[in-house]
Amino acid sequence: MTSVVLLEQLKAFTEEIMADMILPVAMQQGDTEQAYRAPEVYLMRLPDSRAAKKKAPYIIHRVIPLETEQQPGSEERTVVSVRSIFCCYNPDEQEGDLALLNMMERFRVELLKVRKVGAVGADGKPRYQFTLDISPDHKLESIPYDEESKPYYAGEMITYWKLPTVQQTEDIELWR
Rank of each mutant, 00 (worst) to 15 (best):
R77N: 09
R45I: 00
M104T: 05
F130Y: 07
D97M: 12
T169W: 01
A35K: 13
K150P: 04
T165F: 05
A99I: 00
A52T: 10
Q167Y: 00
A56C: 07
I143L: 15
Y89D: 01
E15G: 01
Q70E: 11
R62V: 02
Y42N: 04
F86T: 14
L111S: 01
L46K: 07
Q94G: 00
Q129N: 11
E67T: 10
E173L: 04
G155C: 11
M18K: 00
A35R: 11
I134K: 04
V166W: 03
V109G: 02
L7W: 07
A56V: 09
E95S: 12
K125T: 03
P91H: 02
I22N: 03
S149Y: 03
P65K: 11
Y152L: 15
E15A: 02
Q94E: 05
G124C: 11
M27N: 08
Y153M: 05
T14A: 14
M157F: 10
V117Q: 09
Y58P: 06
R115A: 13
W161E: 08
G96T: 02
P47D: 01
T68S: 15
K139V: 12
Q34M: 06
S142N: 14
Q28T: 02
Q167L: 12
L174E: 10
S81F: 06
Y153V: 02
Y160M: 07
M104I: 05
L23P: 08
P126G: 00
E67Q: 15
G124K: 08
R108G: 01
D20T: 14
E67G: 05
T131K: 15
G121L: 07
R106T: 15
L111C: 11
K150E: 13
E16I: 03
P91K: 09
Q94R: 09
K11M: 08
V5H: 06
V79Q: 14
G96I: 07
V41T: 08
K125M: 09
H61G: 11
D31V: 07
I85K: 12
R108M: 12
K113Q: 11
H61M: 04
I143R: 13
F107S: 06
M1R: 13
T159S: 15
Y58M: 04
E15P: 00
K55V: 05
M1H: 11
L46Q: 06
Q28S: 01
Q34L: 04
E93Y: 03
Q9L: 14
L6H: 10
E33C: 03
T159H: 12
V80Y: 04
E105G: 13
V4T: 10
L10Y: 13
A51N: 06
L6E: 12
A56H: 04
